[in-house]
Design a protein around this nucleic acid. Structure first.
Length: 513
RNA sequence: GGCGCCGUAGCCAAGCGGCUAAGGCAGCGGAUUGCAAAUCCGCCAUCCCCGGUUCAAAUCCGGGCGGCGCCUCCA
């Protein structure tokens, strides 16, 4: 039984989809007016992992992330750049998509754009006006929060508490907390014809329109950053539920926000990372936000592999805020190496790539009977620990811990059985190892990890380097055979200075950059 | 001011009333190695403070202290 923390109830609830077996999931995506920063990746990575885990658990999941491509910020930025809004939006959307790919976020079924859904937005707005929940005011249309009896139920605010003097520019509204569904166009602004004149959608309405169109009036999971609880999600609820007369989403899930650690910029002096890489995020401590500014995520990807950043994001619970710093990601990367080294080890021992293992795609199929096999008994135990953690509100931190336990157990097995020296007559041990590795692949896949080999730091002359390395290793092997350790160590040390590490293993010498 | 979150080892972090408080990074000791690297084994916390509830609390309640978020645009 999966349990989910619901912001609406502030408790963990058993996860039971509206329609048995089917899950509709909507995540608030970006407003595409600037290149994405790491904060934009948190939600997509987490909800991608959640979708994978739900699919793994046997659900048929439809996952939607919207792209808001018309809004005040877009209009301002495009004017700023002297570029049509559509062109700016297209460029920034492309940047966003590329970043998602790098993070292995590929479980999204729909990326609806606001500008492709203007008709639906107008229809929904008209419905709200017809039903008396919204009113027109000089070409604008506002939602009247006093008409929604439970307005504030998500964020715990009361309409009364939000009342304040109506200032000059919001005199068009009846109450200060009312928000725009439709905004009349000023000259030169992008606009669409509507019953209220030319204009464009307000900020919140596109999510109500698109989630309703694709997932239905009531769907299962609505996600987003904690900062969206108010006003964005509160207003979505007001719009959708007033228009449809039924709950918008059953579970509201909010991820913690990424914080830029104040040590950013100071780390790295010690070893490999240098000061130039120090300000991938804001130099300022505190939340990474638009107003504070932070570097483009694409630049970060030039320094860290996508999978390392993904693992970093998944190594803690999604509701917790995460402090970002380069050193933290480096540490996580060090931990990830343990897995990658095991994959290479597995390939040497088993003669097949870890990435070619056909793992079960559902937890049901992945279940196996360990019998009296001591290794498999432990594998099953760690697998269960992983499932228990994930079932408990998608505790990816606990889940990754189980993954570490699992590799360690597998490495220990390879050591004990001396599989690296020789596998002759060890078919049974190999079979057990394969089952263990397959389980690791199964669980990793459920989080969107270890999907495909990390790209080697590709250098054009790999053949040449490979040939030279073979030669050096051969020369060194001869030296070692002759107890000429001076020569052997000279070779290893010199390579070390070039950033190449030699590993003498039972089966021969290997190397890595 | 209103709403809310957090405080577990040097650092990150799981844990949500009851087994010896997961896991990662760093460090130390050992096995292995010609020496290393990798791997494995071991060591490294009574959970911010003070009260209370309970047979039993890191886990619940109250009060402090210390971080932080939202209330305006934000994933």
């Amino acid at each position: 039984m999966i349990r989910v923390y619901n912001t609406l109830s502030k408790t963990k609830e058993p996860f039971e989809p509206v329609s048995p077996g089917k899950v509709g999931m909507y995540l608030c995506g970006p407003t595409v007016y600037k290149p994405s920063h790491i904060g934009h990746m948190v939600g997509p990575v987490i909800f991608d992992a959640i979708k994978r885990y739900l699919v793994y658990s046997g659900y048929d999941v439809t996952f939607v992330i919207n792209v808001t491509d018309v809004d005040d910020k877009l209009i301002a930025e495009s004017a700023n750049r002297g570029m049509p809004m559509e062109k700016l939006a297209a460029e920034m959307t492309a940047d966003y998509m590329q970043n998602l790919r790098a993070m292995a976020v590929d479980s999204v079924d729909h990326f609806p754009k606001a500008t492709d859904n203007i008709d639906e937005i107008i229809r929904l707005t008209a419905t709200l006006v017809d039903k008396g929940f919204a009113y027109e005011s000089k070409g604008d249309v506002y939602f009247d929060v006093t008409k929604s009896k439970d307005y504030g139920k998500l964020s715990g605010r009361s309409v009364e508490a939000m009342q304040c003097e109506l200032s000059e520019n919001i005199r068009l509204k009846r109450n200060s907390a009312d928000f725009a569904l439709w905004k009349s166009a000023k000259p030169g602004e992008p606009s669409w014809p509507s019953p209220w004149g030319n204009g464009r959608p307000g900020w919140h309405i596109e999510c109500s329109a698109m989630s309703g169109r694709i997932l239905g009036k009531t769907f299962d999971i609505h996600g987003g950053g904690l900062d969206l609880v108010f006003p964005h999600h509160e207003n979505e609820i007001a719009q959708s539920e007033s228009a449809h007369g039924c709950p918008m989403a059953k579970y509201w899930m909010h991820n913690g926000l990424m914080q830029a650690s104040d040590e950013v910029g100071k780390v790295g002096g010690r070893n490999t990372r240098t000061a130039t890489e120090g300000d991938l995020a804001s130099q300022e401590a505190g939340k990474i936000s638009k107003s504070k500014g932070s570097s483009a995520f694409s630049e970060m990807l030039e320094v860290f592999p996508g999978e390392t950043i993904r693992f970093f994001l998944l190594s803690t619970h999604y509701r917790r805020p995460i402090d970002f710093s380069n050193s933290r990601i480096e540490e996580v990367g060090t931990g990830l190496e343990t897995f990658y080294r095991f994959f290479q080890r597995y390939e040497r021992v088993a003669g097949e790539s870890f990435y070619d293992l056909a793992a079960a795609e559902t937890r049901e199929k992945g279940d196996f009977k360990p019998g009296k096999d001591a290794l498999l008994a432990d594998v099953a135990k760690h697998r269960q620990a992983f499932l228990d953690a994930m079932d408990d509100d998608f505790n990816t931190g606990g889940g990754t811990a189980a993954l570490f336990d699992l590799v360690r157990r597998l490495n220990k097995f390879v050591d004990q059985e001396k599989l690296e020296a020789s596998t002759d007559g060890k078919d049974a041990a190999l079979a057990s190892l394969k089952q263990g590795a397959t389980t690791l692949r199964e669980l990793g896949s459920a989080l969107g990890l270890f999907l495909k080999p990390v790209e080697a730091p590709a250098e054009a002359d790999d053949d040449l380097v490979g040939g030279l390395m073979d030669l050096l290793i051969e020369i060194r092997a001869n030296a070692r055979k002759n107890k000429d350790f001076a020569t052997a160590d000279r070779i290893r040390d010199a390579l070390g200075e070039l950033g190449i590490t030699l590993e003498d293993r039972p089966g021969g010498t290997g190397w890595q950059r």
